[in-house]
Design a protein around this nucleic acid. Structure first.
Lengths: 219, 219
DNA sequence: ACATTATTAGAGTTATTACTCTAGAGTGCA
DNA sequence: TGCACTCTAGAGTAATAACTCTAATAATGT
C-alpha cells in the first residue's frame, strides 16, 4: 500500500474514532510511525486529506442512490437504500459530525458539498417518485420535496444526535447498531404515505430497527 | 448592568454572530473594553459562561412548551409554539450549531443537556397528544414518539443545515427569516396526520413559511 | 480615616498544533 | 560509479488561545 493511501486510511480510521478535531497531524503521523515531514510531503495540509476523504465518500453515496433500470422499485430496494446509506454514514461518520467546521474557510469543499447535497436531494426525490410509481407510497409531488429534505436532515444529523444524547459520558462508544437505529426514524418519516397494500409489510421491516431505549434513557 | 451580566450578554451576541469557537476569551474581553483578568475574575473559564447561557436557554424553551390549562389546544397555539421555539433557536443559535463540541469534556453540561432533551421530548409528545385530543391531528400513540423525535432533530439541526448549504460562501449571513423557513419543514412532518377538518387551514399556515429557493439553490 | 474586600488591568505563561526546513536515505538508471 | 529524483526523518517555528499572576484601584463598612 502506497504511503499516501496509508495516510488516507489511517486518517479515516482515527477521524472516525476520535473526531477530526482531536486528531492532529502529529498524532496521525505518530500512529503511522511516520514523521510529520513525511506526511506533509504527501499532503500539503490537513484539509487536503479531508477533501480527498470527502471525494470518496461522495462517490459511494452517489453510487448508493441510483435507480434500477428497466424495472419498478421493490420493498427490498427500499430497505437496501437505507442499509447502504447508513453503512456509508458509518464508514465516514466523522464527516457529518462536524461538517460546519470542516467547511469553514474551505471554499472548494463547501461548494462541492452543496452540489453533493443538491444531487442527493434529487436522487432521493427520484427514489420516492419510484416508490410512488410502484404504488408503495401515495404522495404528492410537492410533498416529496419536503420529505426528501427531512430525510436528509435526519440522516446527516443522526450521528450527532446520538453523540449528544448518549447516556454514559465518554466511556460508551456509538456502535453500528446504534447508528442504524436511525433507519427506524426514516421509516417513521415515510410511514404516513404508505399505501394500504404495503403498510403491514413495511411496518414489519421497520420493527427490525426499533432503537433500544437503553441507549438514550436513564433506565 | 453588572459586569457579570455584561459578559454574558456580549458572549451570547458574539457567539451567535461568529460561532463559539471563533470567539476567544481575549476577543470577548476586548469587545467589552475589559481585561482578560477581569473576565476571569467573574467566570472561572469559558465553559462556565457557556453553561450559564445554556441555563437561560433551557429555561426559555421549557417555558415555551407548556400546555394551556383548562382548555383544548387550538391552531393558533400550534403556530405559536413553532414561532416561540424558532425565536429561541434564533436567540441562542450558537448553541445547537456546535453542541457536540460544547459538550465535549463537559460532563455537567452534557448531563443537563440530556435531561433537557428528554424533558423537551415529553413536552413535545404532550403537545401532539393535545392536538390529537383537539381533533387537529389523527395519530397513534406510538407514532407520536417517532414524530416528536424527528421534530427535535429537524429543529436542532436546521441552523447547521442552512450554514452548510448556504449559497454564497462566507459573505451572506443567515437571517431570522431563513431560520424560520424551518417551520415549513416541521409542518411537513406533521402534515400527513392532519384531520380532514383542519387540513386546509393548516396548509394555509404552512404556506407562509415556504423557503425562498434562492437561499439554497444556485439559480 | 482606615482596614477590608471587591474589582480591574495587563503583561505573561503554557500548551497546543498546523506546518516548515534541512539534511539524509533509498532507488532507478546511464 | 555517479547522478537525479523520490521519499523520509525529526527538530524547529509561528500562531493561537485559554488562562494566571501581581499589583493597582475602587467600593464598603466601622
Amino acid at each position: 500500500m502506497k504511503t499516501r493511501d496509508r495516510i488516507l486510511a489511517a486518517a479515516l480510521e482515527l477521524f472516525n474514532q476520535q473526531g477530526e478535531r482531536k486528531v492532529t497531524t502529529n498524532h496521525l503521523a505518530a500512529h503511522l510511525n511516520m514523521s510529520p515531514g513525511n506526511l506533509y510531503y504527501h499532503f500539503k495540509n490537513k484539509q487536503e486529506i479531508i477533501y480527498e476523504l470527502f471525494l470518496t465518500y461522495e462517490k459511494t453515496v452517489d453510487g448508493n442512490l441510483d435507480l434500477p433500470e428497466g424495472r419498478m422499485l421493490t420493498l427490498e430496494d427500499k430497505l437496501n437504500y437505507l442499509q447502504k446509506i447508513f453503512q456509508g454514514l458509518w464508514e465516514y461518520r466523522f464527516m457529518h459530525r462536524d461538517m460546519e467546521h470542516l467547511l469553514l474557510g474551505e471554499e472548494r469543499l463547501h461548494a462541492r458539498y452543496r452540489d453533493f447535497f443538491r444531487r442527493s436531494q434529487q436522487k432521493t426525490e427520484a427514489i420516492y417518485e419510484g416508490l410512488r410509481d410502484a404504488n408503495i407510497i401515495d404522495i404528492g409531488q410537492r410533498e416529496i420535496e419536503g420529505l426528501a429534505l427531512n430525510t436528509w436532515i435526519v440522516v446527516t444529523s443522526w450521528y450527532s444526535f446520538l453523540q449528544c444524547n448518549l447516556l454514559s459520558y465518554g466511556e460508551e462508544d456509538i456502535t453500528l447498531d446504534m447508528l442504524k437505529g436511525g433507519i427506524y426514524q426514516i421509516f417513521q418519516l415515510e410511514r404516513p404515505y404508505l399505501t394500504e397494500q404495503y403498510r403491514a409489510q413495511v411496518q414489519a421491516m421497520q420493527e427490525a430497527f426499533i432503537p433500544r431505549p437503553s441507549w438514550l434513557s436513564s433506565q
